[in-house]
Design a protein around this nucleic acid. Sequence first.
DNA 1: CTGAAAGCGCTTACAG
DNA 2: CTGAAAGCGCTTACAG
Lengths: 357, 357
Amino acid sequence: MRINAAGGRVRQADIANLAGVSQATVSMVINNRGGKYHQIGEGTRRLVWEAVEKLGYVANPAARVLAGGRNSLVGVYTFEPVFPVDMRDFYLPFLLGVEEAAEASGLDLVLFTSASGPDRRRDIYRDGVNRLRITDGCVLLGRGGSAVDLARLINDAFPFVVIGRRDLPEHPIACVGADYAEATAQVVAHLFGLGHERIAYCRWPDLTEATLDREVGYRRAHERLGRSVDPLLLRTVDVGEVTPQLLRGLLGRGATAVIAQDAAIAAKVRECATLLDMVLPDELSLAVLGDPPRSEASGTDWTGFDIPRREMGAGALHLLLTALGDADDYEPREQLLPCAFHPGTTSVAPSKRKNLQ
Amino acid sequence: MRINAAGGRVRQADIANLAGVSQATVSMVINNRGGKYHQIGEGTRRLVWEAVEKLGYVANPAARVLAGGRNSLVGVYTFEPVFPVDMRDFYLPFLLGVEEAAEASGLDLVLFTSASGPDRRRDIYRDGVNRLRITDGCVLLGRGGSAVDLARLINDAFPFVVIGRRDLPEHPIACVGADYAEATAQVVAHLFGLGHERIAYCRWPDLTEATLDREVGYRRAHERLGRSVDPLLLRTVDVGEVTPQLLRGLLGRGATAVIAQDAAIAAKVRECATLLDMVLPDELSLAVLGDPPRSEASGTDWTGFDIPRREMGAGALHLLLTALGDADDYEPREQLLPCAFHPGTTSVAPSKRKNLQ
DNA sequence: CTGAAAGCGCTTACAG
DNA sequence: CTGAAAGCGCTTACAG
């Protein structure tokens, strides 16, 4: 490294020496500050730049940050270990969106990989310390995210935005979600439009917003057409519980279409249908509520919708920026992005199917 | 964020106040320094940690770095904008490797996305500032990487490791590369083993280590078997220059197998072969020197080798750690990882082919 | 075992 | 138009 007299890195002080000006002046010149205090002469400017070039000066960003306040570091924190490759496929687009937006705003991203302990579980608070604080603010990602941790972050007045709609009983939370309710309603409406009368829905057993919102959409679509939801067609299942018997039950109840919350369930339903010797999609229409990860899509062009993951990532970063901007009168907001409906090839108008009894 | 009396971020001074100790003691406790000077009592330790927890203190990384400490922040810097999706596909595994290793070492990752200017060109040094310095050290990734920038980093005594073999005239550089020479030699040897006598090679026109190393391997494999390289079979081409005429030239020169540096060229060669009504792979064996990105593989199981991208990423991080460890007698090292040979289905024993004149 | 102090290299009021 | 000084929040000798 370029060395000054003292054998250290070249500092503004060295430039000041060589140029015969004060250190403050060097700073002003380098940052091109024209503040009301410092009007710096052309001659001085040149002197300073010459010295800079001669000594090969480079500002120390740490010092700069320390003296200046913000550090232009924004964090990305994932609640679950991100390594299982499937998960990666799923989360990556969010990350890309965040990154794009960060790049556009001149921010660097901190990936909190260290946050997971030896057990690979993740906690924001470990040893009572919130590492996220090295950043100006964070984007939070993933299914986990205990309400306790979130409440604590709010308590700490730490700026953050959650990707995915999130409701916290007490506190309003800034989040950017996908409008699953409306997107689901659209899928259901599409099936109704094709002529299906009885549409089954297999949802997850969890109680997250993502699951509940979709059910809301399923019900909403029925309401809009003045139809009532048959409770026996609305099933709460784990993938493992999807069996030919289950499917037979739905068919027996008159279902001509099955909507699955995710691709794993959808694939399982299809498998069962095949076991029952059904011809797809003619004898059974299928739909999935969201874009399946590559590994599970397996070439099928499912009826469903695309989650605007990239846009959600970018939106989260932007929301975070406004939070950082006017820290004072900032009101946590929920922002819902529309999902693009995708007709796909797994659903068609219902036809007669053979009797399964 | 937790606010102290002065309305600012919580600092060590606030902890010191609350715990009734000096700021220096807080620093020692937090960094768990047992230096010969400071033996700190268990009681004091507890008091400090309690205060830390109560106020939600987190060290300011900039200040820490400035004062000479470590950060547990490691940077990842990509020379090219990473956004074109193909590029992503290519770079992602490296990143995963780095992340895995970082996670295992309790380090967080800083993605320098801001490094690219408005023109989306990337420079480490912009406005005379090297932002990388907020980290303890960096992993550098990508094809760009001007020798000037690298030399400057070395001059600055900034710890870094390059992914991909890199030779700098003057300075030794720490890098983790793939052993392209040996991997290429293996591909050639495989083709010789199948009975091919004359093997053409289409390389890129650039002069990067990645390109030169592969050519070395091509030549080495010939030497080992006591064969000489026919200069007319070793072609330097852009994708655009791969034409049926080119291929005809190679065939006319007796080639029964063509090795392409990348999948784009390989695909083009195959296309040309098809135009010449050749039956593949019987009449022409093909190989690619590296695993093609998903988008270009297009279902073909190319003869070639797998670049150990993930391992390279992890290796780079580990090398960086040793560099950070004994900063004193640290000697920049080059580390080459073997590539796994992959027989594939695009090459077989040569057979008679029809005369193309 | 602990505190007071210097210093890391900057930026930014403030005083001329 | 420019300089002297304070302060950002830490770490690390040094002095007790």
